[in-house]
Each structure stands twice: as structure tokens, then as C-alpha cells.
């Protein structure tokens, strides 16, 4: 299977939000004010982050909202991914708020067991975000088609492993090393954190290229949503990794 046929078959990104074709089928030209910009995408990311923190505050104080937040957030994520990207502006803010509720509750439970772990996980997540943004903007990390294919394959592999583990848990079984705090379990978590972090580079490239190509304004919401999906995943994996390290 050649590189390009593999890309066409399995999609073009590690992030599921980017596996769609965004070719502009509308032949009407887009005016300058209706085009995607870097400013707009960053501002919308800030709005989603603020909503996520607001939701987390609620989830922290009312832990009963954790599971509903997780379920509704996941449903909203799938709706945003599979619906027309032009509607992302109406679903992405709700996704951020509900996912924030889930993260707030999960962090509260983790904080009860391991005090101080929440602020460490948030700090590391944003630290990785800022350092990778610097590496991307300065050209230290240069994403290519091969890079994207590699990240996509690894992300799908991890998703499949989690799915199998989740299904097996209903039958009283599971893939032990994923959740263990042994050397192999920590190594696996480190690998997953690495893949989640590298997905951020793809998000940056998507937003940068979208702004350069002058995509429609609503793609700012879509780019910000994709960044949020990756950030939420990265935060969860860092929290898991820290919990494994602290439980040793």
C-alpha cells in the first residue's frame, strides 16, 4: 500500500476532528472579513478554555455531574466531528463546558487521593502546549505527511487498545499493563502522553494552514475545537501518568 493510498483510506490526521475533507465546494468567493484568521482561532480557543474552566469549577463542587458531563461531552464531540463544520460554533462551546464538568469531577477524585496532583497536571498540560507552540512557530518541529500518518496510526492504535480494554472490563477482564503502576504501565502512559502532545503540532499546522488558505470564518471554531479535544486528552493522560507515579 503506497503512502498516499494509505492516507486516502485511513484519513489524513491523527485527530479524528481532522479526518474530513474541507475542500471548499462553494464557488462564491469569501470576503476578507469572513475568512479564518490566527487571531480569531486563538480567541475562540481562549473562549473554549474559559468555558472548560467554568465547567470544571462546577464539576469540582458537584461531583455528581462528572458522568453526565463525560457522556454529553463525548456525544457533542462526535456531533461536532461528523456534522457540517460550519455548525461547530454552536456545539464546541457546549462540548468545552460539559467536558470541563467531567474533568473537574475527575480531578477532584484524583486530588482527594493524591493532594496537589491537579495543579501539576494542568501546569504540565499548558507547559507542553506552550513549548510545542514555540517549537512549531519557530520551525524546530516540521510536520510532514509521513509525520501525520505516523501520529494517526499511533492514535488509532491507542484508541483501539482502550476500546478493547473497555469492552473486556464488562467481562471482568482487562489489559492489565495499561492501568498498572509498574515500569511497563508507566512507559505506556509516557508513550500515550507523547502521541497526544504530538497531535497538538497537527492542530497548530491545521490552524496555520487554514488561516493562510483563507478558509471560511466558522473554521476558527473548528480549529479551536480540535485543539480542545487534544488538550482534554493530553490532560487526562498526564493525570493518569502522575497518579501511576504517585501510587508507587
Amino acid at each position: 500500500m503506497s503512502k498516499h493510498s494509505a492516507l486516502n483510506t485511513f484519513g489524513r490526521s491523527g485527530n479524528p476532528a481532522f479526518t474530513r475533507n474541507f475542500t471548499n465546494t462553494n464557488s462564491a468567493p469569501i470576503s476578507l472579513t469572513e475568512r479564518m484568521t490566527l487571531d480569531g482561532a486563538v480567541n475562540k480557543t481562549a473562549i473554549l478554555l474559559a468555558l472548560c474552566f467554568g465547567g470544571a469549577f462546577l464539576g469540582w463542587n458537584i461531583p455528581a455531574l462528572t458522568i453526565p458531563g463525560l457522556i454529553i461531552g463525548t456525544i457533542l464531540a462526535f456531533i461536532t466531528i461528523f456534522r457540517n463544520p460550519s455548525k461547530a460554533g454552536s456545539t464546541a462551546p457546549f462540548y468545552a463546558a460539559f467536558e470541563g464538568m467531567a474533568l473537574g469531577g475527575i480531578t477532584m477524585f484524583a486530588e482527594t487521593a493524591y493532594p496537589g496532583i491537579g495543579i501539576q497536571a494542568i501546569g504540565l498540560t499548558f507547559g507542553i502546549l506552550a513549548s510545542l507552540l514555540f517549537c512549531y512557530k519557530s520551525g524546530i518541529i516540521k510536520p510532514t505527511e509521513n509525520f501525520r500518518l505516523m501520529i494517526f496510526s499511533a492514535t488509532m492504535g491507542i484508541a483501539l487498545l482502550y476500546l478493547v480494554s473497555f469492552v473486556m472490563s464488562f467481562f471482568g477482564s482487562g489489559i492489565g499493563f495499561i492501568h498498572s503502576n509498574g515500569l511497563f504501565g508507566i512507559g505506556f502512559s509516557l508513550f500515550v502522553v507523547g502521541i497526544a502532545a504530538l497531535n497538538l503540532v497537527l492542530d497548530f499546522d491545521f490552524i496555520e494552514e487554514g488561516a493562510a488558505q483563507g478558509l471560511p470564518k466558522y473554521m476558527e471554531w473548528y480549529g479551536a475545537f480540535s485543539l480542545m479535544v487534544t488538550l482534554v486528552w493530553l490532560y487526562m493522560e498526564i493525570l493518569r501518568l502522575l497518579m501511576k507515579l504517585r501510587s508507587r
Binding site: L38, D39, A41, V42, T45, A130, L133, F134, Y136, K137, S138, G139, K142, F204, E208, A212
Partner: peptide
């Protein structure tokens, strides 16, 4: 940094 265009190297 997010609002600044990436370098020409990128």
C-alpha cells in the same frame, strides 16, 4: 505567540 504567523522555515 498563537497570533503570530509561523516562521518562513515552517
Amino acid at each position: 505567540l498563537g497570533k503570530i504567523r509561523a516562521s518562513s522555515k515552517q
